[in-house]
Design a protein around this nucleic acid. Structure first.
Length: 583
DNA sequence: CGCTTTTGACCAGCGC
DNA sequence: GCGCTGGTCAAAAGCG
């Protein structure tokens, strides 16, 4: 039962996670000692709080204090004792009754019970009704000032609680809606792509198999980066088998071949603040170090694929675990010592589907080994579970940002600003876009607070404070609503406007999400250990699958979530893909 | 027994 | 051309 309660709470209120996390509701079960201890603390706090207005969210616990008033007189020890009783856990569900009985009995012994009652109330807040609390407030048994004050406080807290509860509800609904829309749009997008592919008769466009859509996206991204997007006939043309770029092999007209190419160069300079490689040798295309394959090469298709895979999204998060939980299944296929870092770099590939091109590298930061750097490459060629989808969408969306950012400096910035002010007013994470790196890379930094990393990252182009998931979501929205056009002749500014012009409900949702995210960010920021679960947390919430909370808890608890093998803690175990590669 | 991880070998790109 | 480095392969070992 106890166990169940914890779970039920989580699953029932994904959002509750934000507000109640500090309270640690999960562990109620039989773990009396711990719980008691916690409650003790809270009770003491409450006692203290009665005298001086307390802080914020933890108040639900403080409700307990209100009960003190029932015992009215001496606070401290007695109360503690009561708290220690903690039997209340067993009675969680019968709050009102217990409360009444307690009041009636007035037994010292019951003192604790009443407390329990209160405690239960707190729990109930999370789970179900709060009627019991109300009864307490209503019945003004003790006339003394203390009690009144306590009641007042309780009333305030309750009101606050109700408000938050309502807000949670709204947010939940909003998220559900967003999720639904998202899924619908994704389906739409896939369908559209498929159609487009068929129309153009592009073999590369296969939805399944190695070449898959994923690569395409990155190709698009790549192209976008090159500023060819506008010219590219949507995705299909981007397949690029025989692009105009191929025109001049030697000089590489990739970008130049297209009219926009010129614009692109300009933008690059502006945006990037100048990539040495690019500026110095525009001929090399957008790949600074020439490491990036060129489409003009003979093996267009292969290179295309390779190119697509070059776009990367890096996530920095503090975590003791071997890997961050992203909801996907991974198989380690290699490990190597990388230059300049004493920590080995591990290579993983997605095993959720045969031939899935997605790879990721996991390595600890040399400077700060508590920071785990996970770099994703490629897009999944298969459906993803909600929790995995969140991360995937985040990364792919972040990657897309490269695209939008590269279109034109002004536009890119505008997009960033737009995202920043519209979606992430208070978020603390940072996104760093680095097109100058060997590979175009977007870095989502979950380890940073407000401070810009810019200076830590030599080649960062520009940064935008953001919360990855929301960021991704926003970008997803972008792509949903205008993604296709984007690949043709949409410019970032337009995209932004489109985004802003999203159906009212969407807009409202974003705002709501923004607020929620802000709250979440604050909470997370307060708990360093929690950052590792940030993406998954937001993800799970947005994904609307309550089950994810488990992941969150796991991460949070630093229980390493046994991600060692799959990076996936939850239910995914069943899918043990046999062969990860088409050997 | 099957799957995953480990780990040395191999390959490709790049700089000198 | 050679060496360095990053990335991948694949046989062997480990694990449940």
């Amino acid at each position: 039962m106890a166990k169940g309660s914890g779970l039920s709470i989580d699953s029932a209120d994904p959002f509750g996670f934000f507000q109640h996390r500090p309270i640690v509701l999960n562990s109620f079960p039989e773990d009396n000692n711990r719980n008691i201890h916690k409650w003790k603390l809270s009770a003491m706090d409450a006692t203290t709080l009665n005298r001086s207005p307390p802080p914020t969210i933890q108040f639900p616990l403080n409700l307990n204090c209100s009960h003190h008033r029932q015992e009215s007189p001496p606070p401290s020890d007695d109360k503690r004792m009561v708290i220690d009783e903690m039997d209340f856990f067993a009675k969680k569900t019968h709050d009102s009754n217990d409360a009444v009985s307690t009041d009636a009995g007035k037994n010292d012994f019951h003192g604790p019970t009443s407390l329990e009652f209160n405690v239960n109330t707190g729990l109930n807040l999370l789970t179900t009704n709060t009627s019991s609390d109300q009864s307490l407030v209503d019945d003004g048994i003790s006339p003394n000032v203390e009690d009144k004050r306590a009641k007042l406080e309780l009333a305030v807290l309750r009101a606050e609680y109700e408000r938050m509860k309502g807000e949670n509800q709204r947010l939940k609904e909003t998220l559900n809606q967003v999720t639904t829309n998202y899924n619908a749009l994704q389906m739409h997008l896939v369908t559209f792509k498929h159609k487009k592919t068929e129309e153009n008769g592009m073999p590369d466009a296969k939805v399944e198999g190695k070449d898959i859509v994923v690569p395409r996206q990155f190709m698009d991204l790549r192209l976008a980066t090159n500023g060819n997007i506008a010219d590219e006939n949507s995705l299909s043309s981007s397949e690029g088998r025989s692009h105009e770029r191929s025109g001049s092999p030697g000089t590489n007209g990739e970008v130049k071949a297209s009219k926009e190419g010129i614009v692109f160069d300009q933008d690059k300079k502006e945006l990037l603040g100048c990539k040495t490689g690019r500026e110095d040798s525009p001929d090399q295309g957008w790949a600074p170090n020439s490491k990036l394959p060129r489409f003009n090469s003979p093996k267009d298709v292969d290179q295309t694929e390779a190119t697509m895979r070059k776009a990367r999204v890096s996530v920095r998060a503090r975590s003791e675990a071997a890997m961050i939980t992203d909801g996907c299944q991974w198989r380690k296929y290699g490990q190597k010592m990388a230059k300049g870092n004493p920590c080995p770099r591990a290579y993983y590939r997605c095993t959720m589907a045969n031939g899935c091109p997605v790879r990721k590298q996991v390595q600890r930061c040399a400077e700060d080994r508590t920071i785990l750097i996970t770099t994703y490459e490629g897009n999944h060629s298969h459906p993803l579970p909600p929790n995995a989808m969140a991360m995937a969408s985040t990364t792919s969306s972040a990657a897309k940002m490269l695209l939008s950012g590269s279109m034109s400096s002004a536009d890119g910035i505008m997009n960033s600003n737009f995202l920043t002010r519209t979606l992430l007013p208070c978020s603390s994470s940072m996104a760093t876009i680095s097109a100058s790196a060997p590979f175009p890379t977007v870095t989502l930094d979950l380890t940073q607070s407000p401070n810009p990393l810019q200076f830590q990252r030599p080649q960062s182009q520009f940064q935008i404070p953001l919360l990855p998931q929301i960021f991704g979501q926003a970008l997803q929205n972008q792509s949903k609503f205008s993604g296709l056009q984007m690949s043709q002749d949409m410019d970032p500014a337009q995209l932004s406007h489109q985004l802003q012009a999203l159906p009212t409900n969407q807009g409202g949702q974003q705002n709501s999400i923004s607020d929620t995210v802000s709250a979440a960010t604050a909470a997370i920021a307060a708990d360093p250990n929690f950052t590792a679960a940030l993406a998954a947390a937001i993800t799970s919430i947005i994904g609307g699958s309550g089950a994810h909370t488990n992941n969150i808890c796991g991460n949070n608890a630093n229980s390493t979530t046994t991600t060692s093998s799959n990076g996936n803690i939850t239910s995914t175990t069943s899918n043990s893909n046999s062969s990860f590669q088409g050997k």
